[in-house]
Design a protein around this nucleic acid. Structure first.
Lengths: 178, 178
DNA sequence: CCCTGCATTCAAAACATATTGAATGCAGGG
DNA sequence: CCCTGCATTCAATATGTTTTGAATGCAGGG
């Protein structure tokens, strides 16, 4: 195959590996996704293992990860007994999946814990010495800041996820930046 | 100290550790930040090490990390020879720091690499066999999608960072969510 | 110019995470 | 009901990361 194609393929796959790590996934997951994304046809686990030079076990586990996150789908190839996968190529869908299941949960948890702390501090107020009360007020201020941050994050998430009809990436491509 | 204060302190510090990991920093950095945030006065490296029960070395290295990211600042305490730190309590500033120096760079790099790939593919077109040309077009499509994603991310970053006068977190607190 | 009290560095150790490949499981064909 | 071809699991291992603490560096006081 022409070296340009090979080079582009490799840098894309590497880049997606990097992106995956950035988002807290494993490098291999990103590379698997990239390999699938750049393959016109579906690939078997063996294909993927051969291409990326990683073991069958690793391919199997990481692919299941990709499936769980809705980044790849199983595909039936007639006449084949093996499993074949293709990448979920709708980026928007992938992002929704990640934001919804992971980020959303983190933010929720954080807000829950912070809310509890505030309640506890308010409930305990009478039991505290003057000095402790002062510290409690300090805590309430700082925790209020954190709460504001997470509420901002929640707003941002809602803004991105809430837009029912997938933001039009193609349109965005055409916007001139800087 | 009253157990409520202790409990709230601990859960906040733990939560910030978690948040730090989520953002790709070390757990310890988050906990150090949390400890400083909940301390009315500045703390020395020893104070921090004692509180979190970690070694001097670790405190030293992680604090320098926090400083580099603009999450903590050195503070002079008169009559003391030791270094003292306080948390940068302006969350907005912290977020700007992280987004600007890290996320911004990632997005930039990605867009650069993708752009290069597109150029390479276009330049090589004539050298390709019919079959290779077809694959090249396929690559261009997929890479275009990735590009659109990163351009979206860049837009989002600009939107958040661009607003010159720090988004008003306090105001956001008051918005009713869901 | 040494001594003290601190911060910093860095190699070794502890710890965490990812990968491997042999063993196991499972389905469909004969 | 066994055999084959595959996927999956998991304990052992390799790899990467963080922490530690002893050694080192450095500034200021005496």
């Amino acid at each position: 195959m022409h070296e340009t194609l090979t080079a582009v393929n490799e840098s894309t796959v590497t880049g997606l590996g990097r992106l995956a790590r950035f988002f807290g996934f494993s490098d291999v997951m990103g590379r698997l996704y990239g390999t699938l994304l750049l393959s016109p046809g579906p690939l078997s686990l063996d294909d993927l293992g051969d291409t990326l030079e990683i073991s069958k076990g690793s391919v199997s586990m990481n692919m299941r990860g990709l499936e769980r996150w809705g980044m790849a789908k199983e595909v039936w190839v007639r006449g084949e007994r093996r499993k074949f996968y293709k990448a979920e190529s709708d980026m928007w869908q992938v992002i929704r999946n990640v934001l919804e299941s992971r980020e959303q949960r983190e933010v929720h948890l954080a807000l829950h814990v912070l809310g509890e702390s505030i309640e506890k501090l308010q409930a305990a107020e009478c039991d505290l010495s003057a000095e402790e009360q002062q510290l409690a007020r300090y805590y309430l201020d700082r925790i209020g800041d954190l709460q504001a941050f997470f509420q901002f994050a929640q707003l941002a998430l809602h803004a991105v996820l809430g837009s029912e009809k997938a933001l039009d990436f193609e349109a965005i491509t055409k916007i001139e930046i800087e």
